[in-house]
């Protein structure tokens, strides 16, 4: 029999592999398998009719569109925040640094009602933006705001360590070769940061596409206008339209797999670059 494992001195291979595989099977493989099974139970016409329904397509447009806009905004501001946290010294820096993780720790429903309270027409920010003709809550812009909140730490936390690891010596080398500060940033630092920025973007985007809790309060959930795809799945479920919910979920799951694959490729790229 070909040996499954190389190292025979460390104990517990069978036990831990058994537990790991059983746990993952029960929690991930079996349920996702059932989802795919249910989806294949539909005829192609039914499936296509469901996922290309006008209201569903409008929800994709909002979910993916808002996620894209939010992730782009997060890239710009996330990189600035990471830069300020790594390169500049100011009082309270560690508090600010810790606060960046707040969206990871704060329940999404809490974020949802807090943002709604702020941006509602009678809220602190909403009441100031309303006279300018900017409507945030109960509009697509509200979805973007919620997704910015959710996605921001992903960009900061992927860019920050790369920026910290970036040795002073390469910058000094650039300076000694006659580069000015702007040239050093543009030609030395930014190229080094690219992979991390892309990964942060992909992570923020992936999280935002599937986000539910923080969005449902602020969006207003108007069909065709401010209804996100995850909400549509829940609506279908509540109407006992399991087949349709499953079909839409399959589309989202496929998108998740593509994003996961992209993120894996990006991270492999980063490891290869930093290993050099």
């Amino acid at each position: 029999m070909p040996r499954l494992v190389q190292n025979t001195i460390i104990p517990g291979f069978g036990l831990t592999l058994g537990i790991t595989i059983s746990y993952l099977s029960l929690l991930v493989l079996l349920p996702l398998g059932v989802l795919v099974l249910k989806a294949t139970g539909l005829t192609w016409e039914q499936f296509w009719a469901t996922i290309s329904d006008e209201r569903v397509v409008a929800s994709y447009r909002l979910s993916f569109g808002a996620a894209l806009v939010a992730a782009l905004i997060n890239v710009v501001f996330g990189v600035i925040v990471a830069w300020v946290l790594v390169r500049y010294r100011f009082p309270g820096r560690s508090i600010v640094d810790a606060l960046v993780d707040l969206p990871f720790a704060l329940p999404t429903a809490v974020a949802g009602i807090a943002l709604t309270a702020l941006y509602a027409p009678n809220g602190w920010l909403g009441s100031r933006l309303e006279p300018l003709g900017i409507k945030v809550a109960y509009a697509p812009l509200g979805v973007v705001v919620a997704l910015i909140f959710i996605g921001m730490p992903f960009v900061v936390r992927t860019v920050q360590p790369v920026l910290e690891e970036l040795g002073r010596d390469v910058e000094e080398a650039a300076v000694s070769l006659g580069a000015n500060r702007w040239q050093t940033i543009r030609r030395i630092i930014i190229p080094e940061l690219w992979p991390a920025v892309l990964t942060g973007f992909a992570l923020a985007f992936a999280r935002a596409v599937g986000e539910y809790g923080s969005v449902v309060f602020i969006s207003g959930n108007l069909p065709m206008k401010t209804e996100i795809t995850p909400l549509l799945i829940i609506t279908k479920l509540e109407q006992y339209q399991y087949a349709e919910a499953t079909a839409i979920a399959t589309v989202m799951l496929a998108a998740s797999f593509i994003m996961l694959f992209t993120i894996n490729l990006l991270q492999r790229w980063i490891t290869r670059r930093t290993a050099l």
Partner: peptide, 24 residues
């Protein structure tokens, strides 16, 4: 493959996480 499975929940919408158990 195990590593990919472990990463999966990060990319899947929470709503789908609920849905799969309803289907089951």
């Amino acid at each position: 493959f195990l590593l990919t499975l472990i990463d999966l929940p990060f990319a899947v919408s929470p709503v789908i996480a609920g849905l799969i158990f309803v289907l089951l």
